[in-house]
Design a protein around this nucleic acid. Structure first.
Lengths: 342, 342
DNA sequence: TTGTATGCGTTATCAT
DNA sequence: ATGATAACGCATACAA
C-alpha cells in the first residue's frame, strides 16, 4: 500500500531515462524519441500504474481543459437537456464539464464566475439569458473581461445583457408563429402567461405574442397578460385567474411562456374540470420531453435543446482554437402542434 | 492588452512584501501577519485584480476541490435531480461539480473515471447502480482502488457491483409496498414492466414485486413480467403488449419499474383509448416532478432524489475529512398514491 | 512577524 | 535522440 500515485519522475527513474524523455512519450509529444526509449517508458508507466497529473499539466500549459455551463437549475429539464448537449461535445473533445446552478440569482452567478476564473476554466457557457440587474452589471463585465483577457471563451445560449458571442433560439419568431397559428384557428381572445420580467427570453416571447396580435389587427388587452414565473406554480395561479373571468370575457386560448408554465395551466384547469381543448386551448414554449406525455399532449413551440447545448459547446471550442466565429447565431423554432389546441 | 492574470508574485512585489507574506494573507492562513502587511497585500491584490490560481493551489495541496457525479444521463430527470442535490452541497462547501454522462456504458464510465483520476478529483459519486458486466469489473476495481489509495472518496447512490460506501433507496421495500397496496386494492393479476436486466436497482424492484406476490399467496406469472428499459419507449411497447392480452388474461394493474416507463405505459394505453384507472391501474417508481402533472396524476413510489444527492455529497465530504461513516445507508421510500390506481 | 528556499508534477528550452 | 533545468503559481518548513 506504500506509495502514492506515481509521478513522471518515478516513471523516468524506473525506465532508466530522463524525465524529459519520459514526458515526451507520455505527453504524446511530436518530439522524436527512439523506439527503445519509448518502450521502456511505456513499460515503466504501465508497471507503476502511472496517471498523468492534469493539474500540473494545466498549470504548465495555462489551459485547464475545463469548461462550465451556468444554468438556472439543472433539475429543470430545459437546462438539463442543454447541459447534456454541452457535456457530449466537451467529452468528445477531451474536456470536463462543470455544472453551476444559480437559481437565477446574480450573486450566485457571480460567485461561480469567480470560482471558474480561479480554476482557470477554459470556457463558460451561459445557458440562460442575462439578468436585468444593473447593480451587478459592472461586476459581471469586469470578471468576464478578465476571463476573456486570459484567453477563456464565453458563449451565451440566449440573448444576454452583456455583449457576448451568442446562440439564440428565435424566441420572438416562435412566439409570433404560435400566436399566428392560434389566430388562424379562429381564436381572438388569447391570454399570455408571461415569464420573469427580468428575463430577456421571456420578454422576447411576450413581444412575439403581441406582434402577432397587432399584425392581425387584434388589440392587445393587458388583462389577458397574466404574470408567471417560468414554473408550474405560475401556471396554476394563471389557471385560477382564468377561471374568474366572466364567461364572455374569457379567452379561448392561453399561450404560456414556457412548457413548465403550460403544465401548470393544464393541470390547474383540468383539476377545475375544464376540458382541454374543448373549453380552452393551451400551448407552451420549449417542447420538453414531457410535453408529449402529459394529457392531452401539449401543443408547443419546439426548441432543439440538446442541439443548442451542442452548438454552444462547439462555438466555445472554436473560439478556443482562435477560429473566426459568428458573433450571433439564431436557431429557428418549429411548431409542435399536438392536442391541447383546436 | 498588456498583462495576463496577476500572480501572487506580482501582488507581493507591488505590496513590497515577500511572496510568503502575500500567500499567508491571500490563502486565509492562520499564520500571524501584521495588520500593516495584510493591508498592503490586500490593496495590491485588489489593484491587480488578483485571482488565486486554484490549479497551482491544488497541485501544491494535493487536493483539487473537484468532485464528480457519474450519471447515466443528466437529461433524465431522475439523474438531474440527484446532480442538483450533489451540486448544492458541493457548492456550499467550496467544491466544483463535474457531471459525467455515461449512457450506462461501461467503457464511457471507465473513460471518465480515468479522466477524473488524472484531474485528481477529490471524490466521485456514482448516481446509478453498478453494471453487471464482468469483463469490466477488474478494470473498475483497479481504478477505484487507485483513486481511494490517493485519498479520493467514492460513494454510490445505489447498490453497486463494487464494494463501495453506499446510500441506497429501498428499492425492494418500495416495490413490495406498492405491490402490496395494489393487492389490497383487490388486484390479482398485476403486470410488471421491468428495467434493464443488468441494473441492480431494477432487479431489486422486480424482487420486491415478486416478494409481495408470493407473500400474498399469488402466483408469479412470467407472462406478466414485461421487458422494459427504464425509458418511455419500453413503457409504450409494454402498453402495446398489454393490449394484445385476451380479455380474461388481461392484468388489472401494471407496475412500471420507474416513472419514465410508467409515462410510456400511460400514454401508450391512453392513446389506445384505455381509461385510466377505470380500465387498468398504472403505477411507477421514483416520483419525478412530472409524475404529478401527467394526467391522470401518477401513483408512484416516492424517492427523495435531490435529498439523495445531497446525502451522497455529505457522505463524500465526510469521508474526505476522515470522519467515520456508515458503510451502508438505506433511505426509505413512501407511496404517493395519486389517481392512476384504484 | 518576516523572508528564503523548496517542492508539488509537467513540459519546453537549451544544451549536448 | 537525450538530458539537465527553468518555470507554471502557490504554500509551507525553516531560518532569521
Amino acid at each position: 500500500m506504500g506509495k502514492q500515485t506515481a509521478s513522471i519522475v518515478d516513471v523516468a527513474k524506473r525506465a532508466g531515462v530522463s524525465v524529459a524523455s519520459a514526458s515526451r512519450v507520455l505527453s504524446g509529444s511530436s518530439y522524436p524519441v527512439s523506439d527503445e526509449t519509448r518502450q521502456k517508458v511505456l513499460e515503466a508507466a504501465q508497471a507503476l500504474d502511472y496517471a498523468p497529473n492534469t493539474l500540473a499539466r494545466s498549470l504548465r500549459a495555462q489551459r485547464s481543459n475545463l469548461i462550465a455551463v451556468i444554468v438556472g437549475d439543472n433539475a429543470d429539464p430545459y437546462f438539463a437537456e442543454i447541459t447534456r448537449g454541452v457535456e457530449e461535445v466537451a467529452n468528445e473533445r477531451g474536456y470536463l464539464t462543470i455544472v453551476c446552478n444559480t437559481d437565477r440569482q446574480s450573486d450566485r452567478e457571480l460567485h461561480y464566475l469567480r470560482m471558474l476564473q480561479d480554476y482557470r476554466a477554459d470556457g463558460v457557457i451561459f445557458a440562460g439569458s442575462g439578468l436585468n440587474e444593473p447593480e451587478y452589471l459592472e461586476q459581471f463585465e469586469k470578471i468576464i473581461e478578465t476571463m476573456q483577457a486570459r484567453g477563456a471563451a464565453i458563449v451565451a445560449l440566449a440573448q444576454h445583457t452583456l455583449q457576448l458571442p451568442t446562440i439564440q433560439v428565435d424566441n420572438f419568431g416562435g412566439a409570433r408563429a404560435m400566436t399566428r397559428h392560434l389566430i388562424e384557428q379562429g381564436h381572438r381572445r388569447i391570454a399570455f402567461v408571461s415569464g420573469p420580467t427580468n428575463l430577456l427570453v421571456a420578454t422576447a416571447r411576450l413581444q412575439g405574442y403581441t406582434a402577432a396580435l397587432v399584425e392581425a389587427g387584434l388589440c392587445v388587452d393587458s388583462d389577458l397578460i397574466l404574470p408567471g414565473n417560468f414554473n408550474r406554480e405560475g401556471g396554476e395561479q394563471a389557471a385560477h385567474k382564468l377561471a374568474q373571468f366572466a364567461a364572455e370575457q374569457r379567452p379561448s386560448a392561453v399561450f404560456a411562456a414556457n412548457d413548465e408554465t403550460a403544465f401548470g395551466v393544464l393541470s390547474g384547469l383540468s383539476s377545475q374540470g375544464w376540458r382541454i381543448p374543448a373549453d380552452i386551448s393551451i400551448c407552451g414554449f420549449g417542447d420538453l420531453p414531457m410535453a408529449s406525455v402529459v394529457y392531452p399532449p401539449l401543443t408547443t413551440v419546439h426548441i432543439g435543446l440538446r442541439e443548442l447545448g451542442r452548438s454552444g459547446a462547439h462555438k466555445l471550442l472554436a473560439q478556443l482554437q482562435r477560429e473566426e466565429i459568428e458573433a450571433n447565431e439564431i436557431i429557428p423554432t418549429s411548431l409542435s402542434i399536438r392536442c391541447t389546441t383546436s
